[in-house]
């Protein structure tokens, strides 16, 4: 589904060059829920943005469903993104002038697809916002806003859901809500999810955890691995 091969990413700031990713090899299978963990500045968000086609790697390949992203034009990447990828952000990023319903259907309109109201209703029900479709984002709580964002990320049935610190702005209770929601989409619909987080409680929902440090993957653990906890505790020390 996702294949990241020997990817590096550099950013130039004047004459200074910072290497954020230093040779990443990484893949995600269909139906997997992967959490990418690491301290801030370790490059985990950058990797997510590369997978989302918002930027291209300095070297290396990124494949999405067999299509190489780094050779595509910005426009082609945008089109791939709006068909195959759903994005959830830390700070929700809802469009303030649009109602909940309009926010959710935005990706369909952007892609000139027909809106099926039943599907929207179903999704609204899944995120428990059935009666909120006419509200504006500023009338909702943070948790509700993030649920709208999740619905928006899933309305076009993307192959992959990318979530960048989806619980970073929320308290434990609302975080738990959001994570449960993501888990249920993962378990019930087989949604492939890649989530960046620095929160172990969030990462615990994933099948696999990838640990990032200073631009390289330090280690990967499967949930069924014996040393899962050991790695985590070491990592968190």
């Amino acid at each position: 589904m996702i294949k990241v091969a020997d990817v590096t990413k550099e950013f130039k700031n004047g004459k200074e060059v910072t290497t954020v990713l230093k040779g990443i090899d990484f893949s995600v299978k269909e139906g997997e829920f992967v959490a990418i963990m690491g301290p801030s500045g370790s490059g985990k968000s950058t990797l997510l943005q590369l997978i989302g086609g918002m930027d291209i790697p300095s070297t290396g390949r990124i494949e999405l469903d067999g299509e190489e992203l780094q050779t595509k034009s910005e426009k082609q990447r945008t089109i791939i993104r709006r068909k195959d990828i759903g994005f959830v952000f830390q700070n929700y990023q809802l469009l303030p002038t649009l109602t909940v319903y309009e926010n959710i259907t935005f990706p369909l309109h952007a892609d000139r697809q027909k809106v099926n109201p039943d599907e929207v209703q179903e999704l609204l029900k899944a995120v428990a916002l059935t009666d909120y479709e006419k509200r504006f984002p500023h009338e909702l709580s943070g948790g509700q806003q993030q649920r709208v964002a999740i619905a928006r990320a899933l309305i076009h049935k993307p192959a992959i859901l990318l979530a960048d610190e989806p619980t970073g702005n929320l308290d434990r209770e609302r975080s738990s809500d959001i994570l449960d929601l993501l888990s249920s989409f993962h378990q019930e619909r087989g949604q492939t999810i890649v989530m960046v987080t620095h929160d172990m409680f969030a990462a615990g929902h994933a099948d696999r955890i990838v640990l990032f440090k200073d631009g390289v993957i330090e280690t990967e653990v499967q949930r069924e691995d014996e040393d899962y906890a050991e790695f985590l505790s070491r990592f968190m020390a």
């Binding site: 918002m54 945008t78 993104r81 709006r82 469009l95 935005f106 990706p107 952007a110």
Partner: peptide, 16 residues
């Protein structure tokens, strides 16, 4: 800026 960035992220092309 934030909104437009979001629109781009969730599927608006530059041209749109």
């Amino acid at each position: 800026v934030k909104e437009i960035g979001t629109m781009r992220a969730i599927g608006f092309t530059k041209r749109q």
